[in-house]
Computed example of a mutant assay.
Amino acid sequence: MRALVQRVTEARVSVDGEIIGQTGPGLLILICAMQGDDTARADAMAAKIAKLRIFQDSAGKMNLSLKDIGGSALVVSQFTLAADTRSGNRPGFSAAAPPAEGRALYDHFTASLRAQGVACETGRFGASMQVALINDGPVTLWLDV
């Protein structure tokens, strides 16, 4: 699985002008299931993200996890994270998992993150979404598991 994780003070996702998911202080997680991914990888990604120490402690050091601060997450599916731009000007997305498989892994990842004790809301798989956020730091990490 591949994720782009952003530390945010707030984030929201809308479909057709309606907010369908949001978070306060915590993480915006853009997630993509890749060819060959399975539920074990989704579980590993959820565990990694829940424990990432990217929030500041009282000394100003990135030493606290999402769970430590009691933060929440907004999880948005984004197959374009699988883009291959090495050749030509049009990205290829063949490295992404097929839609049915991607949806199942997206749902599994979100359930696994919740099982880690992280409150989370989601976007709508396969929908055209608008995402708004205030990146805190900014802190943005690319993760492959």
Rank of each mutant, 00 (worst) to 15 (best):
M1G: 02
R2G: 04
R2C: 02
A3Q: 10
L4T: 12
V5C: 04
V5Q: 03
V5R: 01
Q6N: 08
Q6W: 07
R7V: 14
V8A: 09
A11S: 13
A11M: 04
R12Y: 07
V13H: 02
S14T: 10
V15I: 15
V15N: 08
D16S: 13
E18C: 08
I19L: 03
I19E: 15
I19Y: 07
I20P: 04
I20C: 06
G21A: 01
G21R: 01
G21W: 02
T23H: 02
P25L: 13
P25M: 08
G26H: 11
G26T: 11
G26S: 13
L27Q: 08
L28F: 12
L28Y: 09
L28G: 10
L28N: 08
L28S: 09
I29V: 15
I29K: 04
L30S: 03
I31L: 12
G36T: 09
D37S: 00
D37V: 00
D38H: 07
T39Q: 15
R41Q: 15
A42H: 00
A42V: 00
A42T: 01
D43R: 00
D43L: 00
A44G: 08
A44F: 10
M45K: 00
A46L: 01
K48M: 07
K48E: 05
I49M: 01
A50I: 06
L52T: 08
R53I: 05
R53E: 07
R53Q: 11
I54R: 06
F55T: 10
S58L: 08
G60N: 12
N63P: 02
L64D: 11
D68P: 10
D68Q: 04
I69D: 10
I69G: 13
I69Y: 12
G70N: 12
A73R: 02
A73M: 01
A73K: 01
L74G: 06
L74A: 04
L74S: 11
V75C: 14
V75H: 03
V75W: 10
V75N: 06
V76Y: 12
V76A: 11
S77E: 06
F79Q: 06
F79A: 03
F79M: 05
F79N: 05
L81M: 12
A83M: 07
A83V: 08
D84H: 06
S87C: 05
S87P: 01
G88V: 05
R90C: 03
R90H: 09
P91E: 14
G92N: 13
G92L: 13
S94F: 08
P98M: 08
E101D: 15
E101H: 13
R103F: 07
L105K: 00
A111C: 05
L113Y: 06
L113W: 09
R114I: 10
V118Y: 03
A119I: 03
G123V: 02
G123M: 04
G123W: 05
R124Q: 14
R124I: 10
F125D: 07
G126V: 14
G126H: 14
A127M: 11
A127V: 09
S128Y: 10
S128I: 14
M129C: 04
M129S: 03
Q130C: 02
A132K: 02
A132P: 01
A132C: 04
A132Y: 07
A132L: 04
G137H: 11
G137E: 09
P138Q: 05
V139Q: 08
T140L: 08
W142P: 02
W142I: 02
D144F: 04
V145T: 14
V145F: 12
